[in-house]
Amino acid sequence: MTGPQPSALSTRALVAGYEPDLPIVRGVDFSIRSGELVIVLGPNGAGKSTFVKAIAGLVPIHSGATMLGGFDITAVPTHEKIRHGLAFVPQTENIFATMSIHDNLLLAANVLPKEKRSRRVADLYAMFPDLAARPSLRAGQLSGGQRQMLAVARALIVEPSVLILDEPSAGLSPKIVQEVFAQLKAINDTGVTIILVEQNVKAALAIADRAAILVEGQLRHEGPAATLAEDPIVAELYLGARPAGKAATP
C-alpha cells in the first residue's frame, strides 16, 4: 500500500491444468508484496483452487513461471517448495488424520535443521494452546476449527515467507470462521505474506489488503479490499450481474 515493496511471490503468464490439452489456469500474471494479505475470489470453476495448487506444485504447470522472492520455483519439486519458504494448506484432508497432533507437527518440522525442530514445535504450541493441551490426540478426532488450526500450524512450522490457504473456511460455522480469520490476520501481522482462496467473500474481504478476481482461468480484476466490497464489477463478475447493493452477501 505504501511505495514499491519487493514482490514476495509472483506468477508470469501461468498456464496450468491436470491434462496437457485442457488448461484450467490460462495465463495469470499475479503478484503479492511482502507482508500483504490477498484474497483470490471468483465464481465456481474459475480456477482459483487450481491456480494456488499449481503454485504449490500439485497441478502440472504447462507454461509460464512462478517466482518466490525473486527466485524461480516453477520447476522446483513439490516437496522442495516448503524449503524455499512457500507453505500451502489444502482445502480438504489438510492434516494427517491417523497421526497424533504431535506427530503431525514433528513431521512438518522434519524439513528444518535438527537443532531448530523442537524449538519450532514448542513455538507453535505456544501459538495454538488448543493443540498443546492434548498433543497425543489423533488429529482425526479434532473438531473442524481445530483441524484448520493444526493445518495452519503445520504450515507455519518452517517459518514460511508466503502462506497459501485454499478455502480455510469451507465447512466451518460462521463463529469458527471468524476465529480462523482472526488467527490468520494475526499471523499476517507478524509479517507472513498470505494468499487466501475464499468463497466466504464478506469475511475474507474484512481481513484482506487486496483482492484478485479470477474468471475462467484469467485474472479479471484486482483492487484494494476495502473498495472492492462496494465495486459493481465485483458484483457482476463474482455474483453474476446483480445490483451492487446486494454484492456484499456471499
Binding site: 484432508e93 497421526m99 513431521l107 512438518a108
Partner: peptide
C-alpha cells in the same frame, strides 16, 4: 512418520516437504 504420511495422503505429504 514420513512413511505413514505418504501412506495416508501422498499429496499432503509432498506439500509438507516429504520426498515420496
Amino acid at each position: 512418520r514420513s512413511m505413514r504420511a505418504v501412506s495416508e495422503n501422498q499429496q499432503l505429504a509432498g506439500v509438507a516437504g516429504i520426498d515420496a
